[in-house]
Amino acid sequence: MLSRRVIPCLDVASGRVVKGTRFVDLVDEGDPVELATRYAAEGADEIVYLDISAAPEGRGTLLGLVERTARTVFIPLTVGGGVRSVSEMRDVLRAGADKVSLNSAAVADPTLINRCAVRFGRQAVVVAIDAAREPAAGDSAAGDSAAGAPLRWTAYVRGGRERTELDAVAWAERAVELGAGELLITSIDRDGTGAGFDTELLRAITDRVGVPVIASGGAAGPADFVRAIREGGADAVLAASIFHRRIHAIGEVKAAMAAAGLVIRSTAGVAA
């Protein structure tokens, strides 16, 4: 049976792990390879690096980091942030990544998804979508389904700083048609808040696409991971701060998933 995956996400900048709340207020949280190694030992099913500096001069640093990680950690590695072309994707794969996640560059030029999928196979192409509810949190309706209006989410780019005109759910469908093999869906409203994953956003997307969906943004405790899968239909769940700050261990999350009847990969040291 195929397991539901638990994926620690490491936001990296200049070769270090950083984490902020709602994409700002960055705090240094350690060495990526050290953290990735710890997570692999604790039962992580995959590692995601998101290069949030994504400055052109930082590419060498990122590629070096990817290679050091691939040589040390024998579980899958997905790398995102700042990949704008087929050749940049090739460089990241050759450095040792298994998958590359595309975000702003795919919005700017959706054909990039297709060109990367043709060159490397769709299984290597993850499209990351940062989505926020409409009307934006803080407005009177506050994204509450009880208000009666159908729920809508808008895609944002540039690390959540720039609003697009794209409906996030429609963009998810389009990305899959273009060749995305997996979607990484982050709720900007929930990211770093501990308010739980946006299961309505996840469900809206998982009902419409046939590729695996990774839930991101808002995990506070093991029960949130179970809900993202049960209610949101996610295949995998991703989190950062709760793992980095040792608020919850990966084993704890997997134990809660197993207790809820979900199939997980049990590893040494992970209660199943």
Partner: peptide, 10 residues
């Protein structure tokens, strides 16, 4: 049920 088949399988 999903394609690509991505993840850990027994």
């Amino acid at each position: 049920p999903t394609l690509p088949h991505i993840g850990w399988n027994t």
